[in-house]
Design a protein around this nucleic acid. Structure first.
Lengths: 120, 120
DNA sequence: ACTAACGGTAAGTTTAAACTTACCAAAACG
DNA sequence: CGTTTTGGTAAGTTTAAACTTACCGTTAGT
């Protein structure tokens, strides 16, 4: 709830197909930039830019090993997104009952209205 | 895993701040378009367009009531995103140990290298 | 029937995101 | 040292997303 209000950047980061591909690659194991770029159709600089976005969204983190930058998934960031969705998931589920109830009410209402109309 | 491969559209949908605001509004309770637009800074047509995006991403659903279009959060779509994140969250957590182990290995390796270098 | 309310869509503009090539700096290795 | 590997950044282009106004069809209310 507290530290991560970066939901926008996080969701935005995973909204891009290329970044999603990178993210999923890193989920399987930590990789250097060249390794990440290997399977992808975009250039290596493009990958670097995507990595920056993902890192700023706290979804991945980086450790330097000599000339290599090793990227890996940041579980905390992912957790934050999960929590966010959890909140609205339960919230919407609670609403579900209310919707059902209201729909019932409205059905009887509109039935009444229909009856009224057909009475004209 | 099966029915929802719309992860892109879903994450993309929540990536936009205005759509996030709409989504959160709807989480508190189902609303008509004018009600949704009420608090927001953008025009009503813009809201309609955002609603379309959210609906195509299966994050919200709509029922028609006379002239009103009542929108509400689609729990299934949210659930699908949760599942997606769950998968990569656990996956990255499993990696965490491996990273730690490998980091240990690399530390001893680089220690050996440093020793070698300082021996020159 | 006439008018209000509601809301979806079309057309056009503006801004920003994704990508490219080119360049550069730092570490590694012979 | 020279050179290769690695990867970040800058500058510029292109495409697409977000928004606006204008318009129209449908339902509701009087």
């Amino acid at each position: 709830m507290q530290a991560f209000q970066n939901y926008n950047s996080a969701f935005n980061a995973l909204g891009d197909p290329t970044r999603r591909a990178i993210f999923e690659k890193l989920a399987s194991r930590p990789l250097s930039v060249v390794h990440i770029a290997e399977g992808l159709t975009v250039s290596r600089p493009a990958v670097s830019q995507h990595l920056k976005v993902l890192r700023e969204a706290k979804l991945i983190s980086m450790v330097q090993q000599g000339t290599r930058s090793i990227y890996s998934v940041n579980s905390d960031g992912v957790q934050a997104m999960r929590d966010y969705l959890d909140r609205f998931w339960t919230e919407s589920l609670e609403n579900f009952k209310q919707i059902a109830e209201q729909t019932e009410k409205l059905k009887t209402k509109s039935n009444a209205a229909n009856k009224k109309r057909s009475n004209r």
